[in-house]
Measured scan of single mutants.
Amino acid sequence: TETYTFDSEDQAEEFAQRAQKKGYTVEKRKENGKFKVRVE
């Protein structure tokens, strides 16, 4: 499980979609103005 942090929602969304296409489970959340994407 890895967590990635992005400054913009667009970046987080793009990353999450790519990860989902590769078959990963993706969980997105906003925390302290940053966008976190957890991938497993």
Rank of each mutant, 00 (worst) to 15 (best):
T3W: 15
K22N: 13
R29W: 15
Q20F: 10
Y24V: 04
A16R: 05
R29S: 14
V26T: 09
A12Q: 04
K21I: 08
A16F: 10
D7K: 04
E40P: 04
Y4F: 12
Q11K: 10
K36S: 10
Q17L: 12
Y24S: 04
E13W: 07
T1A: 13
T5D: 06
E14V: 07
D7T: 07
G33P: 00
K28M: 15
N32C: 11
E9W: 11
K30Y: 15
D10G: 08
E14T: 07
V26S: 03
Q20S: 10
E2M: 15
R38V: 14
E27N: 09
K34M: 10
E14S: 09
T5M: 08
E9H: 06
F15K: 01
G33T: 04
Y4L: 04
N32S: 06
A12I: 01
V37T: 01
R18G: 06
F15I: 01
Y4D: 00
A19D: 01
N32H: 08
E14L: 10
K21L: 13
D10W: 12
A19V: 10
V37M: 02
A19N: 05
D7Y: 06
N32K: 07
A16W: 04
K34E: 05
R38Y: 14
A12P: 00
K28V: 15
D7N: 07
F35T: 03
Q17I: 11
K22D: 13
V37C: 02
T5G: 03
D10M: 10
F6L: 01
Q17R: 13
V37K: 00
K28L: 15
K22A: 14
K28I: 15
Q20V: 13
Q11W: 05
Q11D: 13
A12H: 01
E40C: 14
A19S: 05
E27V: 13
T1I: 13
K21H: 08
E2W: 15
T1K: 08
Q20P: 01
S8P: 00
F35K: 00
K28S: 09
E9I: 06
A12T: 01
V37W: 01
Q11M: 10
G33L: 03
K28D: 01
T5H: 06
D10E: 14
Q11R: 08
R29Y: 15
Q11S: 08
K36T: 14
D10S: 10
Q17V: 11
A16G: 04
V26K: 02
T1P: 12
Y4S: 02
V39A: 02
E27I: 13
E31T: 05
K30W: 14
E14A: 12
D10K: 10
D7F: 06
F35I: 07
N32F: 07
E9D: 08
E2T: 14
N32D: 12
R18M: 13
Y24F: 12
D7A: 07
